[in-house]
Design a protein around this nucleic acid. Structure first.
Lengths: 196, 196
DNA sequence: CTCTTTGGATTACGTTTGCAATACCATAGA
DNA sequence: TCTATGGTATTGCAAACGTAATCCAAAGAG
């Protein structure tokens, strides 16, 4: 039944991290228990502690992983230059992204909870988000990405907040209009930054 | 010791709602237990269910209340016209607001958790946020506030996301720069909307 | 003025769930 | 065959939600 390969443990660990990432985004960090999470990953409660020191340890790891994956998919997916930026914005502020909580952006799903996390977790988040933002900034100002860093960060914050709000509203027409407005806002700002 | 006046119960209810509002914003909805919350309000566990049918009932009520209070304070505080808008934006995206979680904006503190709440709660949220947004829209376009509604909503989403992000970062200098950038963004958009 | 009713709160409890830990078992590979 | 490793099963303990029995002060009737 169980096969113990050389890299079995690291694979299991990976599976836990990915499962946790999805679950956290779907049900929230406080809303996800360790045992439920392990069952999701096809394991039992106790096995968890062979891989992580605590739930907090997993939270830190999972958040870092989510951001890394997002950074990679952003880099991989988008075309270079302004076209890629527009693509990112439109994809982010789309009804599809809004609906797919578990596969979506960890920022939009967890940002306010992350703000209440431990220093360690927030540090990991900060590191992760900076990598992600670097990817966006490089597209905004290839010649001077560092100056674009804060702008890219603000763009991420805007988009995450807009998506969250769109998720919270029960009026789906209004929620869609909000996304459209969000796209307009983001593109307008990108243009304004370009001109300076 | 205990004095049972005519309006004692409604006062107690009020106190629970206000305490809950603060606690939810500080520790999250899932992060706040009923008994802890009641102790905060100077009561015990069991008394809760004389006032609310369930925790969810309280959550719904508290969120609606928080938004109402915010709408009133926004309307009361700010000057009319563009000056008032700028005042709102600068106050919102300020280090002080970032630091005072319990007294701050419920959107910034709870938005992603609200998105995971029950339909009923989200409906109450939607109603509440629309009142708040109406107040902002009235300042943006006094002649046609309804057309400004979505713009005002998007402004709120932007600001909430930016504040959340600023709270999550461990690098406080970067967090401050982000707030400044957020102010620039918001004001730029307000100007752009004005011109159209 | 006393006795009863009423309503708000307390205490205590039951159930469930979550975190954490540990004793034990099965397999892979030396 | 023996041992390290990875996983299961089980347990302890605390917290959370919710219910119910009880208590106590105020208010009103006779």
């Amino acid at each position: 039944m169980v096969r113990y390969g050389k890299e079995h443990k690291s694979e299991t660990r990976r599976r836990i991290i990915e499962t946790a990432g999805r679950r956290f985004k779907q049900d929230g960090i406080d809303g996800s228990g360790v045992s439920t999470l392990m069952k999701d990953a096809g394991l039992t409660n106790g096995a968890f502690y062979a891989h992580f020191a605590s739930k907090d340890d997993l939270v830190t790891t999972a958040i870092a992983d989510q951001l890394k994956v997002q950074a990679e998919s952003v880099v991989a997916l988008a075309e270079p230059g302004r076209a890629g930026l527009e693509q990112i914005v439109r994809g982010y502020l789309s009804p599809q992204h809004r609906e797919r909580l578990g596969d979506g952006c960890p920022n939009a799903a967890l940002l306010d909870e992350i703000g209440r996390c431990t220093e360690t977790t927030r540090q990991a988040y900060t590191d992760g988000v900076l990598i992600l933002v670097e990817g966006i900034a490089a597209r905004m100002a290839p010649e001077a990405p560092s100056s674009a860093r804060v702008k890219a960060l603000s763009l991420l914050g805007m988009m995450a907040g807009t998506l969250q709000l769109s998720r919270a509203l029960t009026d789906s027409r209004l929620a869609d209009e909000l996304l459209d407005q969000g796209v307009d806002n983001a593109l307008a700002l990108l243009d304004a930054w370009q001109r300076v």
